[in-house]
Structure formats: C-alpha cells, structure tokens
C-alpha cells in the first residue's frame, strides 16, 4: 500500500522512469500554461472576427484563421481552456462519487456490497454516452428556461457547460468505484482496521482516517487516467454538435469545424491539423503519465 508519506519518493521514482515521463510532463505543463496564459498574451485583435477569412498559416496567424477570420491559435488555446477545465472538473466529480461509492460498498460488504456492485455492472452494460447525449439536451433546455425565469440571463451561456461537466462526471465514476471497493475489501481485514474497530472507533472515523489515506495512491492514478477519458467524451459530444456550442469552443467543436472545412475544392487543412495535434499530444501525454504513475503507485499492477 502507498502511504501519503511515500509521495515525495514516488515523484522521484516517476522522474527516474526516463524520457517518456519527462516529455509527457513537459507537454502537459506546456499545454496547461498556454491554455491559462496564452489567450491573455495574444494581441486582443486575435479574439475578434476579421476579414481575413481562411488565411493560411503565416507569421501574423501561426495557425491560420477560420471561417470568421478568427485567429486559430487563439481558438485552439481557448479551446484547450474549456477542454482541460471540463476534463479536470468532470474527473473530480467522478472521483468523489466513485470513491464514496467504492468505500461504502467495500466496507459494508455482504448483501449491500453485492447489490451495489450489481448496479455498477448493469450501468456498465448501458450505452451511457448515448443516454448522456439525450440527458444533456433535455436538462439544458430546462435549465435555460429556469435561468431566464429566475432573472439571471447572464448565466444562460454557462448552463450547458455546467450540465456537461456534471453529467460526464456522473458516467465516468464506475471504474473508480470498482477499484476503490477492491482495495477496501483487501484493507478492511488488515490488523490496523481491526485494532481501530476494537478500540470502538466509529465507522465514519475508520473510513476517513484509516481506509481513505491508504487508498490515495490508487485513487490518484485513476484520477489521472479519468481526465483524458472525460476530455475524450467531451470532444465526442462537441464533435456531434451536442456539447460545447459556438461562440465557445473546445477541441471537439474545433475539430468538428475543421472536418467540415475539408472539401474536394479546397482543403483548409490547418483548421483540422492544429487542434488535432494539440489534443492528441495532450491526451497521449496524460495517458503516458497515468500509466507511469500506475507502475509507481499501484503495487498490484507490477509485472
């Protein structure tokens, strides 16, 4: 088991794993920094619609411009903001639900555990993303009318993204719950839990003070792997035009625009290639990091 005190050590071991990990860390850091600060550093005119429609990449517009003459570099970076934010927020929600569910299921054991895990199995067999598409569109329309009625029209633009994040978190917690539950089953028969119990500690204290800290290593690994999964889900929804909608952009919606701009007469390749490369590099780096973290922190996966 990984104790919290092992983490400095884990960082060193992660760093020592070689160039793949270092390059991945660099890519993630670069994209994150560019997403946060990039849009501020670019000239303000980059955000605006201009007459330079479909301009090829040049010094003025390194990534070219799109249908509305907007700078693609700006679009890709602000898209990165949305995609990363959605990924992190969605993964955090999945993390809270999954950990709580797994903790309770594993700790309760017996019939409760059986029923709770059966429910997870059933959810695994449902085309969740498809139901999610329907749910987002149903709830978004409802929330928009509700926000307008409540007199806060300023929030209407954010209703879709909030619902998107919530629902993505709601579908990505299953694996987390399963893994946490497995760990709890192994941990709860250990002596320190028995000792805590015989000292008369409450269930709540045993769960939060004794089990949770011991789970952190594994949970962090799957948190890292959930972020790219949520980003991928979001881009899927946005690509179909059912996720993030204009004027906001995410990598998925940019790729959808780019795919439409490809036609036999003239192919505006920069609309497709730049978002595609940025997104793929980020996802690849995140997956590499997650895998490396798993090797470092999760003792079960060692071969």
């Amino acid at each position: 088991m990984t104790k919290p005190s092992d983490f400095p050590n884990a960082w060193q071991r992660l760093w020592a794993r070689g160039n793949t990990v270092r390059v991945s860390l660099a890519v993630v850091a670069l994209v994150a920094l560019a997403a946060v600060f990039g849009p501020m550093l670019l000239p303000p005119s980059a955000a605006e619609v201009s007459a330079a429609q479909f301009a090829a990449p040049s010094w003025a517009h390194p990534f070219g411009t799109d249908l509305h003459g907007q700078d693609m570099l700006y679009r890709v970076l602000s898209g990165a903001r949305v995609s990363l934010a959605v990924g992190i927020a969605g993964a955090l929600i999945a993390f809270f639900i999954g950990t709580a569910y797994g903790l309770v299921s594993g700790y309760a054991g017996g019939k409760t555990d059986g029923a709770m895990m059966r429910f997870v199995e059933i959810l695994y067999a449902v085309p969740r993303l498809i139901i999610l598409l329907i749910a987002i569109n149903a709830f978004d329309a409802r929330m928009k009318t509700w926000l307008l009625d409540a007199g806060v029209p300023g929030l209407v633009n954010y209703s879709r993204i909030v619902i998107l994040v919530l629902s993505l978190g709601l579908i990505e917690w299953l694996t987390m719950a399963r893994i946490v539950r497995g760990q709890v089953l192994a941990l709860k028969s250990r002596q320190f839990v028995l000792a805590a119990r015989s000292l008369g500690q409450s269930h709540w204290k045993i769960l939060t003070r004794h089990l949770l800290p011991n789970l952190l290593g594994v949970v962090i690994v799957y948190l890292t792997l959930t972020v790219p999964a949520v980003i991928l889900d979001e881009s899927f929804l946005s690509f179909l035009g059912l996720g993030i909608q204009a004027p906001q952009a995410s990598w998925g919606s940019l790729l959808a625009d780019g795919a439409q701009a490809i036609n036999p007469v003239k192919s505006y390749w920069w609309l497709l290639v730049f978002p595609a490369v940025t997104m793929s590099a980020t996802l690849l780096a995140l997956n590499f990091l997650g895998d490396a973290l798993r090797d470092v922190l999760d003792p079960r996966e060692k071969h």
């Binding site: 881009s235 899927f236 959808a256 995140l286």
Partner: peptide
C-alpha cells in the same frame, strides 16, 4: 489517445 474523429477527416484528406 487519438479520438476517431481526428484520423477520419485526415484519411479523407
């Protein structure tokens, strides 16, 4: 790591 809608349009291209 690459979502299907990236290679799709690229293959068409």
């Amino acid at each position: 790591s690459i979502p299907t809608f990236v290679p799709g349009p690229l293959l068409i291209l």
